[in-house]
Nucleic acid binder design. Structure first.
Lengths: 297, 297
DNA sequence: CACGATCTCTGACTAAGGTCAGCGATCGTG
DNA sequence: CACGATCGCTGACCTTAGTCAGAGATCGTG
């Protein structure tokens, strides 16, 4: 345990020192680091001042001064937000876009220089390690968002889910027109559709549908391949159960195909028990049920 | 390739942001961060001001002011270096030692808090990833140090080497009194003993011995188990070849047991060719030779 | 259209981090 | 023992990052 801490500390020191030196060398423009960060955050699409303040957690006066500085350097222009005269929009000028691109390539070069002294084989290994560590760290910030099942990202997630079922089921899986036909079940008031997100990325999805008063069904639960092994499934299921309870359910059911062995294991460890078929889903082989603890509220 | 850079950048952002927040929360004492870092660097053994300046890359005036601050807080005492009246030594007071320990536990807590939200299984995985990444990053700073073969660390390395041979050779390996008896071969003027270091850690060792004018032998080459797979062996061999050339050799020989397959592969890829036995080492099965390119100097 | 809330900006101020020139004591060497 | 080099210290100065209190314009609501 204490050697674990030593490992983390050793890595932190080695890594931040190296990255720190590189960043000082490469990101050092004529302006302050704060101004550069702000410029980067404004980005190609521009932004509203208040939004920037929230994202960067800056004092309103300080932010204003940084903007004046960027404006004086001809990198941004500000204008009153047409939708609300109190707000102001900031946009990059042509010079600002060029500077943004410069910061971008410099950030890339920092990463490049970190890998450079390792040689290609060891660099590739480090990248793999960091990719995995990155997911472990970022998965902590998993959050759930209720969206309409016809939402672009929801549809994309469902299509990925169906494609995977088709690949894994004996005899394949044909969704037919369920994608659009079932959508209304996953809308308020009788249901919900949830996206699991890490940052902007979609890490999974799932739906809840009220079958009878007090009985809800969890459906369409899927974790994106890259996010498996990061406890996303368990947290997603727990969230869907909370949604079910909010919809008034005290019992949650779900069905599954026997090909989805990891899913079955998860259901069992999370308190689901086998029950007889409660529907005639031709792809289902197992049916599960869990009685929820009464809502503490 | 560009996705490699994106991976590194994503990890850097996720990691430094998280560690940064934790460090702000935990390392924030009543004094400035710079003063805390200085206190930590002084350590239990104290230090000379000039050395601290070099280690922390601080301006002499700035460092002096930080020391005055620590002194005013009763954490350090300064005194003239008895060896050189221009220099000054800094030592921690009892209160300074206590504060140092406090910083140490706080650093541990930062590492702890980084792992905490992951849960034990994923935390263990992250630690393993970081341990490997740490070695990859730190191995870049591999350096070589010529030491006396009777040096404590040299002897420790040789004992580890012999123990490993004993384990790997059919019928074992008995060093007898070679450890002390052969030592003089690895001392100037006829030889050298080299330690490979990463930070303070010993990552390997090796020796060079002049057999005849123009012919040197590489012996006792060993890479510490934890540092295998980090290109230490190749760089160590290259260094020993440079040492051989410095000793006036144009041909480098070495012998090896057939049990050391990785070593044999390395010798072959680095230009060593099989030759007939040039000695009667009872443990040797293969003898190699490499003709060095003439020294460019 | 009055009024409180919201949004951005300006001015005044602070702490941390850091640079630079020069001073005085000490050291090593001729 | 004179002289230049070295070492640490002080004073003066600077930038960055950030806080806080209002001012002025605009918005939403009654």
């Amino acid at each position: 345990m204490s050697s674990d801490l030593a490992t983390v500390r050793s890595f932190t020191r080695a890594f931040t020192r190296r990255v720190g030196v590189l960043e000082d060398r490469f990101l050092d423009r004529d302006r302050s680091l704060g101004a550069s960060r702000l410029l980067w955050e404004i980005g190609h699409d521009g932004a509203v001042v208040g939004e920037l303040r929230a994202r960067l957690v800056l004092d309103s006066g300080y932010l204003s001064r940084l903007l004046r500085q960027l404006e004086a350097d001809g990198l941004v222009t500000t204008s009153v937000d047409p939708a609300d005269g109190r707000r102001r929009r900031v946009e990059l000028t042509a010079a600002g876009v060029a500077e943004w691109a410069e910061l971008e390539t410099r950030s890339d070069r920092v990463a490049e220089q970190l890998l450079a002294p390792l040689g290609s084989r060891r660099a590739a290994e480090l990248v793999e390690l960091l990719a995995r560590a990155d997911r472990l760290l970022r998965a902590v910030d998993l959050r759930f968002e209720t969206v309409d099942p016809a939402d672009v990202e929801a549809v994309a997630a469902l299509e990925a889910y169906f494609a995977e079922l088709d690949e894994r089921f004996d005899g394949g899986f044909d969704p037919g027109d369920t994608l659009t036909a079932d959508a209304h079940h996953y809308r308020a008031p009788e249901g919900r559709f949830v996206l699991a997100r890490v940052g902007e990325e979609v890490a999974g999805c799932g739906a809840v549908q009220l079958l009878d008063p007090g009985v809800a069904e969890v459906k369409r639960m899927w974790v994106a391949p890259g996010w498996r092994g990061h406890a996303v499934g368990g947290r997603l299921l727990a969230h869907l159960e909370r949604v079910a309870v909010e919809l008034g359910a005290s019992t949650v059911r779900l069905d599954t195909n026997s090909a989805l062995t990891e899913a079955i294991t998860m259901y069992e460890t999370r308190g689901y028990v086998d029950i007889p078929a409660y529907n005639d889903n031709p792809f289902a082989r197992r049916w599960f049920e869990k009685v929820m603890a009464p809502d503490p509220t």
